[in-house]
């Protein structure tokens, strides 16, 4: 990975961290905000390498948990699983942008589903179906869009080199 890529990713890593923990939670848009660190992890996995995506997902998720969550480890675990799943799919397929967007959205939705399920398991009680339809699905779509935006940004940095 070149220095330019490292710097770009470093900057976006910090930006994503603060977007997730300080900026987006302040927007009262019915709680519909994208999971930016997941989007970054997925886009880096898709554009550069799984290793980079894993590092970003693990570090970013861990930092976000340390800053905001009482349960440390869940977010990085989910980011890692999503990145690994994406890598597995992309190893054998080269989906077109629309399918790629749907893939990102599906992965983000799975992450949301896992988050909700684990929260339920540890005792949180909420209307699961409604949370999935009115909360998790729109958030997953936003995360998918955000991932596509990251990919568009990283295209200029990548210069055709993919070490997948």
């Amino acid at each position: 990975m070149t220095a330019r890529k490292r710097i770009t990713l470093g900057i976006w890593f910090v930006v994503s961290l603060f977007l997730d923990t300080a900026v987006l939670p302040r927007w009262n848009a019915f709680g519909l905000v994208p999971f930016v660190m997941l989007a970054l992890s997925l886009s880096v996995t898709a554009m550069f390498s799984l290793q980079s995506g894993l590092v970003i997902g693990a570090l970013g998720g861990l930092m976000e948990d340390l800053l905001c969550e009482s349960m440390v480890g869940l977010t990085p675990a989910l980011c890692l699983l999503a990145a690994a799943a994406l890598h597995r799919v992309l190893m054998e397929n080269q989906p077109k942008p629309l399918l790629l967007f749907l893939l990102f959205t599906a992965l983000a939705f799975l992450v949301e589903l896992l988050l909700a399920s684990l929260s339920w398991l540890i005792g949180m009680r909420f209307a699961f179906g409604a949370a999935m339809v009115y909360g998790a699905l729109p958030r997953a779509i936003l995360t998918g869009l955000w991932t596509m935006a990251f990919m568009w940004l990283f295209k200029r940095v990548r210069k055709g080199q993919v070490d997948r």
């Binding site: 799984l50 440390v72 480890g73 990085p76 675990a77 989910l78 890692l80 990145a83 690994a84």
Partner: peptide, 23 residues
């Protein structure tokens, strides 16, 4: 074996999450 590492790391993180629930 990045996927294997990802899975192992995920399990470790989940274990960490389980340990930090309710603290």
């Amino acid at each position: 074996r990045p996927i294997l590492i990802a899975l192992v790391a995920s399990l470790l993180f989940l274990l960490l999450a389980a340990l930090t629930v309710g603290r």
